[in-house]
Simulated assay, not measured.
Amino acid sequence: MGGVGMFAVALGKHYFGAEVTTTVSTGKMERAGQMGAARVVDYTKETYTEVLENTADVVFDTVGDAEIYRVAKHNSTAVSVAMLPDRNGLDHFRHESAPLSLFGKAKLAAAKLIVGAVGWYLTRGFRSKGIRYGYVIMSPDGSDLEKTFNPLLENGTIKPVIANVYPFTTEGVQSAFKELMAGHVAGKVIICVKD
């Protein structure tokens, strides 16, 4: 469970009042419990789709696994921040101020067709169970984040997990990216710009 997963578990438990189940690798099981998970499945030792089959009312995917539909109950909800967007979701990847000619109408239409077809294929399991599926494109909003997180941070309900802190130097930034690219970071990697 990385930084996004840790905050998702904590928000699920402490903000939405949900009973949270999560999947993690062996070394992150205790941390998942500390963040608020009621049930933790070690995906390196168990096939999570079998262990959790048809148990979830809501599924939040952070890794892009099309098999998560197996965990969701019939007629439930699943969202992902890592799978393919639907064909219209591609419009959100282009900044409003960027001229369309940079991508080109024909290339954009072709990309939408391909992404739509692949996305339709990947989400066939969701449709077979009547699961409402959506791809979430995040647009951070400082005031929303403050309103949601600040009370939980200030009263100690959520304690951010920091994996490592690197200096804002060429070597520090390179080391931070190497750690991130290696994967399976437990928490957030910080680049300290100012002391």
Rank of each mutant, 00 (worst) to 15 (best):
Asn54Asp: 15
Gly187Gln: 02
Ala66Leu: 07
Leu145Ser: 08
Gly119Leu: 03
Ile137Asn: 03
Gly172Phe: 04
Leu84Trp: 04
Thr55Met: 08
Ala109Met: 05
Tyr135Met: 10
Lys105Ala: 11
Gly130Met: 07
Ala38Leu: 13
Thr55Val: 00
Asn54Lys: 11
Met35Asp: 03
Ser128Asn: 09
Arg39Gly: 10
Glu46Asp: 07
Phe60Ser: 03
Val51Ala: 13
Leu100Val: 09
Leu84Pro: 01
Val40Pro: 01
Val185Thr: 14
Glu179Asp: 15
Ile191Glu: 07
Asn164Ala: 14
Ala111Tyr: 13
Leu100Phe: 07
Leu152His: 04
Gly27Tyr: 10
Val165Ala: 15
Met181Trp: 05
Thr170Asn: 13
Gly33Trp: 09
Gly142Ile: 02
Pro167Gly: 01
Thr157Gln: 11
Asp141Tyr: 12
Pro99Met: 04
Gly3Arg: 06
Leu84Ala: 08
Val24Lys: 02
Met29Tyr: 01
Tyr15Ser: 02
Val189Thr: 15
Arg70Glu: 06
Ala37Gln: 09
Lys13Cys: 12
Arg94Gly: 05
Glu171Ala: 14
Gln174Gly: 03
Arg87Met: 13
His92Ser: 11
Val189Ala: 12
Val165Gly: 08
His74Val: 10
Ser139Gln: 14
Val9Gln: 02
Ser101Tyr: 10
Phe7Glu: 01
Pro160Leu: 01
Ile137Phe: 14
Val9Gly: 08
Pro151Gln: 02
Arg31Ser: 05
Phe103Ala: 08
Pro160Gln: 00
Tyr133Trp: 15
Ala10Thr: 00
Asp57Trp: 13
Asp86Ile: 00
Gly183Thr: 03
Asn150Val: 04
Phe149Pro: 04
Ala18Met: 11
His95Glu: 15
Leu153Glu: 06
Gly27Gln: 11
Ala176Lys: 13
Thr62Gln: 04
Val118Thr: 07
Ala66Phe: 13
Val41Tyr: 03
Lys13Asn: 13
Gly17Val: 01
Ala78Gly: 04
Ala78Lys: 02
Thr47Asn: 15
Asn88Phe: 10
Tyr135Cys: 09
Val58Gly: 10
Glu154Lys: 09
Val79Pro: 07
Phe7Ser: 10
Lys28Tyr: 10
Ser139Cys: 09
Met83Leu: 15
Gly12Pro: 06
Phe60Gly: 04
Leu180Cys: 05
Ser76Thr: 00
Ala72Ile: 07
Asn150Pro: 00
Val58Thr: 12
Gly134Lys: 06
Asn155Pro: 03
Tyr69Glu: 06
Gly36Ser: 02
Tyr121His: 06
Thr55Gln: 08
Ile162Asn: 12
Thr44Trp: 07
Arg132Pro: 00
Ser143Phe: 04
Thr123Arg: 13
Ala111Trp: 10
Thr77Ala: 07
Gln34Leu: 09
Tyr69Gly: 00
Glu53Ile: 00
Phe177Val: 13
Arg132Lys: 12
Tyr135Val: 06
Leu113Thr: 12
Gly142Cys: 02
Asp42Met: 09
Val189Leu: 15
Val58Phe: 14
Phe149Leu: 15
Asp86Arg: 02
Thr170Gln: 15
Ser128His: 04
Met29Leu: 00
Gly33Val: 04
Ala10Ser: 06
Leu180Val: 05
Glu96Phe: 14
Ala182Asp: 10
Leu145Phe: 14
Ile162Asp: 14
Asp61Arg: 06
Ser76Tyr: 09
Ser101Gly: 03
Phe93Gly: 13
Lys178Ala: 15
Asn164Tyr: 09
Asn155Leu: 02
Val20Ser: 09
Arg87Thr: 07
Ser175Lys: 15
Val115Gln: 07
Ile191Thr: 06
Ile131Glu: 04
Arg94His: 00
Phe149Trp: 13
Ala109Leu: 05
